[in-house]
Design a protein around this nucleic acid. Sequence first.
DNA 1: CCAAAAGTGTTATCGCTACACCCATGA
DNA 2: TCATGGGTGTAGCGATAACACTTTTGG
Lengths: 229, 229
Amino acid sequence: MSNAYDHNAAILVAVDCTILGFGDGKLKLLLFKRRVEPFKGQWSLIGSFVKPKEGVLEAATRVLKDYTGLQNVFLEELSYFGNPDRDPGGRVITLAHYALMRIGEQDEQLVEKYNAQWFEVDKLPDLVLDHRRIVEKALEKLRRKARYRPIGFELLPQKFTIPQLKSLYDAIHQKNLDRRNFRKKILSMDIIEKLDEKDKTGSKKGAFLYQFNREKYDALVARGVNFEL
Amino acid sequence: MSNAYDHNAAILVAVDCTILGFGDGKLKLLLFKRRVEPFKGQWSLIGSFVKPKEGVLEAATRVLKDYTGLQNVFLEELSYFGNPDRDPGGRVITLAHYALMRIGEQDEQLVEKYNAQWFEVDKLPDLVLDHRRIVEKALEKLRRKARYRPIGFELLPQKFTIPQLKSLYDAIHQKNLDRRNFRKKILSMDIIEKLDEKDKTGSKKGAFLYQFNREKYDALVARGVNFEL
DNA sequence: CCAAAAGTGTTATCGCTACACCCATGA
DNA sequence: TCATGGGTGTAGCGATAACACTTTTGG
C-alpha cells in the first residue's frame, strides 16, 4: 500500500454493533462471546476491523450479517470511541453502530455458533473494553431518536397489538404511559392499520393486531414529525 | 509499533472541523485554503490526522486551537465519513466534528496565516473531497440539536438583543418566527437577564441587551428541556 | 415629522393530561 | 362467575398561534 499521506501513522479502525431487540416487555441486547485475545471468552459486542477497500457502514453491515444472518435491519452510526488506551491489545478506534431487530429473526445456527445470547438491558453482564459505555450511549440515542422518529416499529413483529407497542415505548422511555392517551395518539398519526385478527397471548379477551402502513410511515419520517409520547 | 492485532490492515484516521458562526443575520462557515496535495489551495475544512497517542476529540480540539486560537468553544462529534474512495490521496477515514463560535473571537493572525474566510452557508464555494456533504450534515445536526438544546447562545456575543437572538433562530430554522411569541417563550424560560444597556446598531430606538444566566442555562440543558420555537 | 425597528397583551385553538367504566373470555 | 387485560370518551388545562397598536429616535 502506498499513498500520498504515508508519512502519517496509520491506526486500526474497527466497527462494533450494538444489537437491540424487544421481548417480554423488556429491551434486550444481543451479546457474543469474544473470540480473540485479549479478553477471549468474555461477553462483547460484535465487531470487526474495517478492511482496506471496504466502507465503514459496509463493514458494519457485513458484521451484522455474519453474526446474525440478517440484512436490511435498521443499522445506524452511533459514535466513535477513540481513546488511545481503550484497548490494551493495541491502538484501535472503533466506530460504534446500533441495530434494531426483531428477536427471533436472527439465524439460530449462527447464534449458537457464536454463543450469542439476549440480555435485558438492565441486567447486563460485564462487558469487555468500553463496550458498556457503547451500550449506554446506544440506549441514550435510542431514547432520543424515538422522540422524533417512530423507531419502535423496527423492534416489533410485523403484526403487533397496541398494548405491545405501548409496552415497547414504556420500556424505551422508562415510564408508564396512559393506555388511552397512547392509543389515541398513535391512531391519530394514521400510520397503523387494524387487522381482523386478534392476538390472544396477552389476555383472555385478546387484542386486535395491527400492522403499519409503510408509505404513511415513511412519509411521516420524511416530514420529521414530532413523536413525543 | 507492535500490537496484538498487527495482522490487520491499518487505515489513516483524520479529524475535520466544521466551524459555524453567525453574523449579519446569516449562518456562516469558516473555510481554509488547503495546504497539502491533492487539491492544495482549494477551500476546505480544517483537519489533521489523529496522532498515535492522541484521543480523537483531543485531536479535533488541537486542530481547532491551532487554526483559530480558540479553546473552550462548543465542539462535538458529527459523523464518520469512511467511503474507501472518498480521498484520492489514500484511504482515509475522517471523523467529522462541528464547532460553534462567535465570529470575531478567532485569532486574526492565525486566520490570516491560513487564509481563512467566513462564508454564508448558502453561498459556499466548491470544497475539496466530500467536505460539502460534511457541512450539510453539520447543518442538519445543528438544526436538530437546536430543538432540544438552546445551542444558539454559543453563536452570539455575550451581550445580545432579543431581536438578534430571534434572527439567529430564523437563520437556523429557515423560517420567520413571530416576534412577540418568540420573546414570550424565551423570557418564560428564565435563562436570560436584561441589562441596562441598549444596542443601537439595529435601529434608532435601540434594543435592550441581554446576557444569559449560565447556571439556569446549564440546569435547563441538563434537564433536557424542549426548545422548539 | 416620519421611517424603521422595538416593545407589549389578548383571544382562540389545539393538544396533552387525567381519569372511570364496560367488554370479552378462559379458567 | 370472576379475574384479567382490552377497549372507549370527556372535561380541564396549559401551551401555542395569530394578530395590531404604541414607543422611541436618528435623519
